[in-house]
Nucleic acid binder design. Structure first.
Length: 605
DNA sequence: GCCGTTTTCGGCCCGACTGTTTTCAGTCG
């Protein structure tokens, strides 16, 4: 097995499954069948970049590896399949002849000779030291050269012995900070889910707006781009006296530690450990600062390069031609300078949005208001917390034209799934309810389990009575990619199957997606007249943005549904819409933007 | 290592804050 991939596979299911399938030694089985994923290639390139940087290599060469890693990680399709199909990899952003060759090498061998070569010169443990805030490539290099530190353990040892403070460019404070950060890293922090971030942002933004002299406050960064998780919160405020605003900011009651504070920016840690960066600019720079602080970094760099081509310069204060300030009040004004329409924050990932804007081909992104119904929710009949009537009342309040009630099937025993008999009872209840209702239609549905062999967990004659059949995988997460893919396609063969729910099964920060060939699943859905779901539940967001876009490009329509288990969760729709927008989806790409009449036609197979 | 309506060579985004520096390097976003 490739050395570089060993770390990735070690604790995953793939290795175990390979063993089970063949009964042979792991070495042979894994080498013969081991697929290479985009994340494998991206992670090798990232690690090469880290080590090259520590080595003091040309920074632009380092950047080339990072750009390539980013490009590959964001590809909807599988890079190994592209190699197999003989596609020209140099057509990808930031991939030239050299990197194309290296990708082919990784796909063919699972490994990269260059990577092993660098690892012989630079201890690989040094790369982890880059994750310590305040330690960059130069300092890591110095720690290695001067003290012989090669990994985090030795780093801690050196700091405890007080060896670091004596190094040139280091001091007592730096040494103590390293110790503190190592301690904190043991608490294992991860990125914060978007819904958690929302809870923290709202009161903080309120507080900032209440500070004297503050004109505007906006949460920017990945939060504004509606990324599924945020690494930190970037908040922009406008006002004349930055120092005064920052003095009040660091007094916010939830601040645990002030990392830095200056005239225009400050970084603090909240008690949850979440980092918050506040940037204060004058009102005239609002647009430029919002653009800068919203990112993504790649989007900004792209724009700044366009500015350079036209002898202009973009920074967080405005756009300048020589000394003259030519824009900066609004984001629209800055985009307008380049003859571009406004680009929505969710698109700003440098995944082709600037090119699309130039050609006038930006998508008209779906909004919350476009949705006319919600196609997945649960009631007390299975594992929901509210009754059928309560869910319907809440949906009416949201102004929906229809909702689908989709309780679990029997297989999900913990959820007290409905058998055919209980389902029949619910069908009668819904029929009776619809008689009385005005302005909303309750669709009879189910979230039926896809069993191990790809059959569905309820008899066809029960399923055929329903308006909407959502099917999903709740077991057999460890199946091989091929087996999982076949299982799902087989389930879709059932003519009652409408929508595949949470298609990868991932739980953000908790469970990785199961192995499945999504492209094949999507192709299969297209062929059979089935659809996939963007599950809006903030722990799931499944499909994610990249795969939602992949579906759109294949012409496959998706539903956006909350999977609500209580009335309050119907409001999760905003998270699903955020992912859909990041995936470039327009109203027409989404099933439940349609009237029930039109949706009903689409569900006929 | 990539890339090209000015370039196949010579560029490659830009500024704030900290700590250790006495004029700035390193890091970060």
């Amino acid at each position: 097995m490739g050395r570089a991939l060993r770390g990735i596979l070690e604790d995953g299911d793939r290795l175990t499954l390979g063993l089970r399938a063949s009964g042979e030694s792991a070495e042979i089985e894994v080498r013969g069948s081991m697929p290479v994923y985009n994340s494998d290639v991206a992670s090798i390139f990232e690690r090469v970049a880290d080590l090259l940087e520590i080595e003091g290599a040309n920074p632009y060469r380092v950047r080339a590896y990072r750009n390539a890693a980013r490009t590959i990680a964001a590809l909807p399709g599988n890079i190994a399949d592209m190699v197999e199909a003989g596609k020209d990899l140099t057509e990808l952003d930031g991939i030239g002849d050299d990197l194309a060759g290296k990708i082919e090498e990784i796909v063919a061998t699972g490994d990269l000779a260059l990577f092993e070569e660098i690892e012989r010169r630079v201890p690989p443990g040094l790369a982890q030291m880059l994750d310590i805030p305040g330690l960059g490539p130069k300092r890591v290099r110095a720690l290695y050269d001067e003290l012989g530190v090669t990994d985090l353990e030795e780093l801690e040892e050196a700091a405890k012995q007080g060896k670091i403070e004596d190094l040139e460019g280091f001091g007592v404070k730096t040494q103590q900070k390293i110790l503190d950060d190592l301690e904190e890293a043991r608490g294992k922090e991860q990125r914060t889910r978007l819904d958690t971030a929302e809870e923290l942002v709202a009161p903080l933004v309120d507080y900032l707006r209440g500070i004297e002299g503050v004109q505007r406050v906006e949460a920017a960064g990945s939060y504004r781009r509606r990324q599924e998780t945020v690494g930190d919160l970037d908040i922009l405020a406008t006002g004349e006296d930055g120092r005064q605003i920052i003095d009040r900011f660091v007094e916010y009651e939830d601040v645990d530690e002030v990392v830095s504070e200056g005239e225009t920016r400050s970084t603090v840690l909240l008690r949850t450990g979440l980092q918050v960066d506040l940037r204060v600019v004058k009102e005239e720079s609002y647009g430029a600062a919002l653009l800068y602080f919203t990112g993504s970094k790649a989007h900004n760099i792209h724009l700044r390069n366009m500015a350079l081509d036209q002898d202009m310069k973009i920074n967080e204060y405005g756009v300048f031609r020589g000394e003259e300030r030519v824009a900066g009040e609004t984001e629209e004004g800055i985009y307008g300078l380049f003859d571009l329409p406004y680009i929505e924050p969710e698109l700003r990932e440098d995944r082709g949005e600037i090119e699309a804007a130039m050609e006038g081909k930006l998508p008209q992104l779906i909004t919350l208001e476009d949705l006319r119904g919600d196609l997945q929710m649960h009631t007390t009949a299975s594992d929901g917390h509210n009754t059928l009537e309560e869910m319907v009342a809440a949906a009416q309040e949201r102004g929906y034209d229809y909702i689908a009630i989709t309780d679990h099937s029997p297989r999900v025993a913990v959820a007290r799934g409905l058998d055919a008999e209980h389902l029949a009872t619910q069908i009668d209840q819904i029929d009776a309810l619809n008689e009385k209702l005005d302005g909303i239609r309750v669709l009879k549905g189910i979230e039926v389990d896809i069993l191990e062999d790809g059959s569905l967990d309820l008899p066809d004659d029960a399923l055929s009575r329903l308006d909407v059949v959502i099917a999903s995988v709740h077991s057999g997460f460890g199946y091989s990619r091929d087996k999982q893919t076949e299982r799902i396609l087989r389930a879709m063969d059932n003519p009652n199957f409408h929508i595949l729910a949470h298609p990868t099964g991932r739980l953000i920060n908790e469970r990785d997606p199961y192995e499945v060939d999504l492209e094949k699943v999507m192709r299969g859905a297209l062929d059979r007249g089935c659809y996939l779901e963007v599950n809006a539940y903030p722990d799931r967001l499944d499909l994610d943005d990249v795969h939602a876009r992949m579906a759109k490009e294949m012409g496959l329509k998706l539903s956006i549904s909350t999977d609500a288990h209580r009335v309050s969760e119907l409001a999760y729709m905003r998270f699903g819409v955020g992912q859909a927008r990041r995936g470039w989806l327009e109203p027409d790409d989404v099933l439940n933007t349609r009237s029930w009449r039109d949706l009903h036609k689409l569900l006929k197979r």
